[in-house]
Design a protein around this nucleic acid. Sequence first.
DNA 1: TCGGTACCGTAC
DNA 2: GACGTACGGTACCGAG
Length: 921
Amino acid sequence: MTAIKPLVLVDGSSYLYRAFHALPPLNTSKGQPTGAIKGVINMLRRLQKDYPDSPIAVVFDAKGKTFRDDMYPQYKAQRPPMPDDLRSQIEPINAIVDAMGLPRLVIEGVEADDVIGTLAAQASGERPVLVSTGDKDMAQLVNEHVTLVNTMTDTVMDVAGVNTKFGIPPELIIDFLALMGDKVDNIPGVAGVGEKTALALLQALGGLEDIYQNLDKVPDLAMRGAKGVAKKLTDQREQAFLSYTLATIKCDVPLDVSVPELLPNSPDKTRLLSLFTEFEFKTWVQELSRDERTELINESKASDVPSDDALDAVPAFTGTPDYQLILTQSQFTHWLDKLNNAPLFAFDTETTSLNYMQARVVGVSFAVNMGEAAYLPFGHDYLDAPDQLAENDVLAALKPILEDHNKLKLGQNLKYDANVLANHGITLRGIAEDTMLESYVLDSVGSRHDMDTLALKYLDRSTIHFEDIAGKGAKQLTFNQIALEEAAPYAAEDADVTLCLHHVMAAKLKASPSLMSVYRDIELPLVSVLSRIERNGALVSRELLGSQSHELGLKMQALEKEAYDLAGGEFNLASPKQLGEILFERLNIPVIKKTPKGAPSTAEEVLVELAHDYPLPKVILEHRGMAKLKSTYTDKLPLLIDPKTGRIHTSYHQAVAATGRLSSSDPNLQNIPIRSAEGRRIRQAFIAPSGYVILAADYSQIELRIMAHLSEDQGLIDAFARGEDIHRATAAEVFGVAVDEVSDEQRRNAKAINFGLIYGMSAFGLARQLHIGRKEAQEYIDLYFERYPGVLRYMDETRVLAAEKGFVETLFGRRLYLPEINASNGMRRQAAERTAINAPMQGTAADIIKRAMISVDQYLSDSGIDAKLIMQVHDELVLEVAPAALDEVKAELSKLMMAAAKLAVPLEVGMGTGANWDEAH
DNA sequence: TCGGTACCGTAC
DNA sequence: GACGTACGGTACCGAG
């Protein structure tokens, strides 16, 4: 089934101007402006990716007069001449378009619009037409065959879209322009008739002709100044009809090309490479060389991966599903046969607990074809439960299938299934697809990624919820206690829905090679790696934590007494509300800051400030610090030690953080204290077992290095290349002193600036951070951007691109959508802008360490060396290593982590070892 | 007894 | 209001 490829008509001139004006200026090191080139070519590359092999034409305005100038000498007359900085970019664009193999059209005497209108008319009815433009005037071309697409904003406009956007159908767009005129093109329109009046007239009376035939009805229309409008229309009749002609796109320009001749040629890669190099488009240069490498790789492995085409050919299932319950050996044999012969099957485990270390599998469900699934129970043991197949027999029969690399599996969060199967001695292999990860890669923030949410979102299907059959709260049943009549439809549905979801989401992913690569090359291989890390666990000393808890408790008691004396009565130190009353009402201490809800804040920074003048805040601060350590860490961690392994097994969440980072819970191992001496004692409780040492390896300044790479700022790149202390180097630049004369304060300030940049900080934020004036903070920021202009440009460009596209990307193509980037609420919009700045850096760092984890895990298992991964903390990997293996592991780990990305700056890795996690830093 | 919100604090 | 991403603790409040 091959759909007819659409004809793609690109309004090159509209993008040329938009790119030039909307994007911040960009120059090569020789001073050649390239911002518009980059904008236009970027857009063409996107179109090519979206519509490969479609006939396409890139159309530009010709120089000189057009027929409209003859008709109306003032047409576009007020337009300033093209700026030199734009003019000099036209030839390069032409050259690149030609090298890309795209047909380029420039026709004398008419405008690009007319050429596009003509070609659209020619193709109309034979194939769909997509007009790629940023110009709304083109809406007049829209009909059932012709759609507009704004490639810069990724929005499309069909007939319904025109109606929604303008409130009138496409046929009336010319009339609309004729009435209200167009400032940009200097089309006069009817003076005194603006957008609102024009729409009211058109909606009430129809087109221009109809309006003039019904001028008597105009004064009665419900619109502002209706009475005067009729006179204006009468007086300016001629001008109105002239405007109509001017605004009409000509659809019968004589052309000496026709649609079939517009197929793209294969690109001249050598020429492209030299052009991209000349204009210093470094990422495209890299991509060109990378593409050539991957083409070779793909050719060699194309045959052993099942094609997604096979799935796409399966129509969506709409009938009544067939869900079976497997209770007999012959039913089981039948399904084993299906599984063995399926190119891919969905499966799901039902268990007794959400805790993957303690869970036992009590049943398994499968789906091979959509709408057909089965539940195989073997551990339900409620009163009067029917006889089931024996667990041992079932698992023994399934084991070879589940452990076979070549029997491909699909699931929803298969890491969990892999973990619980491991409890039964089964190593899940052949993890080929995971719907949770498909959803996460498609849109990490748009919705949650649990199956119920996905079924509603992608299948418009409401599923049986776990709570529906298990109940909730204290009397919630475990799965083995649920009657099979209820359990079977639920479990079978899970497998079926997973299969249907994959069908839908895989097609979406396929449309975007970069998202597909994030999914297939990063997220999917990571599943098994994370499963192993989780099951390895981290060893903690129960004794050490216990004595720390005890000690903290004693100190807190003393502080409480002290606090009650100072406050003149007992109160709950942990209650911000009660504390606020004591401080700000009873003791009349001034309020420095309020919480978002308006209550006086008792946050740390406030108490630190107050501690200068009052004794109580200092006591509260000390108490809080201890309470935090005790309740969150020293009391809690021992409770999470698994009785069987004696270790702590966290859960890493792969589809939670918007940027692509992992998160960790139960416990969260990614926020164990390190900054204060007291906090670090908790890290001392993370110990190596006897005969091993802890090895911690972390990327040094990874996000700043990524900023240097993405911004291509030469100063920053050079500083990293020289291997300088980056905060010191920044301070030297910003404060204009030699590197070895930077004071501690200057370095501290520079460090705050560097971190602030990563977070999209404002002068206010920096001022608060450094306790300086806002003006002074702004001066620092200005100085910084003066020294590192590439960074400023990158930030501006990122904001603009985010606003136009609605998402930002990491180096590896992971996307983060920013629905509020164009919000009218300034605060929300600014928050989205800060996310836009931060996400590419944080997300690229996440991509890099994930890639490193995959290769490190591969190395560890291939080599069989005595070492294992036990933790990941965003930019750090922690391992347990036998001392005899230490030298080799360190060398290999460093090599693999550095090789996880090729940036314009070196990726440096720091390492430490010790008997515990604290010592390893 | 629970679920949700507010506030606070830990990490990178 | 003003610095990004997480998780989780305690307090508090209201519904059941």
